[in-house]
């Protein structure tokens, strides 16, 4: 496989890999490193991936495993601590401050979810994958994914309502 062919396969989902790593590793730098590392790993196994039907799902599974490993290692733990109050810069800057704040709150709320729910929210609500695809990526049953997703959505919604009402009164 030539480098150009490889890039043609990888480029469509590199942002998804990056966003999932960022969701799990929190800091942008860590996620960038992880993405580079993962793409390099795929490149090393380029002969194998030629045989895969769904490279994207495979890459997402790899991303999940890699990020879990990073989180387990001590180095990454230090990094997450440093970046725990990391600000999301990309929220719509042109909107009103209050609206921006509330949208940013969603980021924080997802941050507080368990890792598995975080990933499911990321894959479903942000990346819009089908449940079948997510179940392959995370090696979970679709029903379990639905349960976790429902729980995550309800948690976020309740927290948002709570914060919003608190802000008003």
């Amino acid at each position: 496989m030539k480098a150009s062919d490889f890039l043609n396969i990888v480029l469509p989902f590199k942002d998804k890999v990056f966003r999932l790593s960022k969701r799990l590793l929190v800091s942008r730098e860590e996620a960038e490193d992880a993405t580079q590392e993962l793409i390099f790993k795929l490149w090393k196994n380029r002969d194998k991936i030629a045989g895969y039907k769904n490279v994207e799902a495979f890459a997402m599974t790899m991303t999940k495993n890699y990020c879990y490993d990073r989180l387990k290692s001590k180095q990454a733990n230090n990094l997450t601590l440093i970046h725990s109050n990391y600000k999301e810069n990309e929220t719509a800057l042109d909107k009103k401050l209050e609206f921006k704040d509330s949208v940013h709150q969603v980021h924080q709320l997802i941050e507080n979810l368990p890792a598995q729910q975080k990933m499911i929210i990321q894959l479903r609500d942000v990346e819009q994958y089908e449940f079948d695809e997510i179940s392959k990526m995370l090696d979970m049953k679709p029903t379990a994914i639905r349960v976790a997703l429902s729980r995550a959505r309800k948690t976020i919604r309740e927290a948002l309502i709570k914060k919003h009402n608190y802000g008003v009164s």
Partner: peptide, 15 residues
Amino acid sequence: EYLFQYFVNAKQDTF
């Protein structure tokens, strides 16, 4: 509105 706006924003983040 916040929730879905966030999802839209989150998808614009690129490598």
